[in-house]
Design a protein around this nucleic acid. Structure first.
Lengths: 250, 250
DNA sequence: ATAAAAACATGATATAGGTCATGTTTAGTC
DNA sequence: GACTAAACATGACCTATATCATGTTTTTAT
């Protein structure tokens, strides 16, 4: 369930300095969309943003829910999931701090969410009403262009993923996933790169379009080959170059 | 090769009527992005747009080419393709009149095209320089919001496609493709719905992530079951409800 | 600390779809 | 209208991955 909600930027902050990150409350300085705004636009946006915390078993929203808000990930990792009626799931994207979601058409047209958003641990989410989002886009060309760039990147990513699913074998896709996560989510460790997000073999399977058993088998092989070690809570990438080779193999 | 280029809107058209489609030269009135603009913005945009015609074996651009222009499909169908070094291809999207392409991040960051764009017959493409596109977005919040909506829809589509590839069997994906094309591209015919775009079994295969042989086999079955008939030049959807049932089957 | 529940592991078997091979039909081209 | 090249068709076979089944290890909750 939603555990907390509070207004941001309770601090008056009358500093006239433009684009100085000093006006941003802690934790918000890593959000591109906020950084590109002029001081006044940013201040206005902060007035509209609300922060909410969620835990592992919450839903931020479910597939089919009406779209009411525009969201930004502040802390933690969120997964975007689509499911079939039979309960099969497909994870489309892992969102990390700074990522926007529900910034697209659904937010305008009053339609419903095409997929659900689930935290992969404790997360902190900023959100604003559709109206405020819309107003911001109309008022600030910078914000609109930032959103366009962001959506463009997301579209490219999604299409890359489509290509991989259509053309690459399972082990290559799984290796790609691990490389990507090591880069985006890893922290250095004496024996390699530790992933900070908890991720089961089932999670991986849903992300690359295979079954849990297949993910387990491939991970077992990767483990034998000293490419990775550990399980969900403590995944360690031991040989990033080796995984990269696999990921880009012909 | 590119066969023709000419400035649009050579007509002065000083009519002050706002948002009247009468100021749009023929063929341009079906392009949402142009329709939502104010008369003055639209006029300015028309000044910047150049029209080019391409044929079946041309490339509008190739994967890896530098991005120089923003594009709009005016007439015909364009496919977005990604390929592997070994020559395997994957068709990500068929663009139809009114569709925008290269409106995303690549257009800004000066990077290269992540895929190629090929006509599926004779097409007519409008384009403008990145700078003019960028200026338009800054000047007109309406245009920016239209692009955001468009990209959002494209992203949703792409993610839906990802889910289908990950979870649906080949025949279901192929049935979906045919249903979609019948709706977007079909014209009524005494015996069903005729597709106006030439599409070989190989084209279909690339669009749903299967091999040509598998596409042929499934189409043979569909033919036996009186769901479709004809080949590339004259594809006929004979039983749209039947295909829809297959496309949404559990 | 213990019980219960996830997560991980691995074997046996099944199957959708890929690969290769060999025709036939259709559609452009001279 | 004959020739050539695509496109379509179908069989035989193969293989990657799914499915089902059963057990072990790790994590979580009490």
């Amino acid at each position: 369930m939603e555990s907390e909600r509070d207004r941001l930027s309770k601090r008056p902050s009358r500093s006239p300095s433009k684009r100085s990150s000093s006006v941003l409350p802690q934790g918000l300085d890593r959000i591109p969309l906020l950084n590109i705004l002029s001081a006044s636009d940013r201040q206005r946006m902060l007035q509209e943003l609300t922060e909410t915390h969620y835990g592992k078993d919450d839903y931020i929203f479910r597939e089919g829910d009406p779209t009411k808000y525009f969201h930004i990930v502040k802390e933690g990792t969120v997964k975007c999931v689509k499911s079939t009626p039979e309960g099969k799931e497909c994870t489309l994207k892992m969102l990390m701090p700074g990522d926007l979601f529900c910034c697209d058409a659904a937010a305008f047209d009053g339609t419903s969410h095409p997929g659900s958003a689930q935290p992969m641990g404790d997360v902190s989410i900023l959100r604003m009403s559709k109206k405020a989002y819309f107003d911001m886009l109309r008022r600030s060309p910078d914000a609109a262009i930032e959103v366009i760039k962001y959506l463009g990147n997301r579209l490219n990513e999604a299409q890359e993923k489509t290509k991989d699913l259509a053309l690459d074998p399972a082990d290559q896709r799984l290796a790609s996933l691990l490389v990507d996560l090591a880069t985006r989510n890893g922290i250095k460790d004496p024996n390699g790169i530790r992933l900070t997000v908890r991720m089961t073999r089932q999670d991986m399977a849903n992300m690359v379009g295979i079954t849990t058993e297949t993910a387990i088998r491939i991970m077992s092989r990767f483990k034998r080959d000293r490419l990775v070690s550990g399980t969900a809570n403590r995944l360690l990438i031991r040989d990033l170059p080796g995984l990269k080779t696999l990921a880009t193999a012909s």
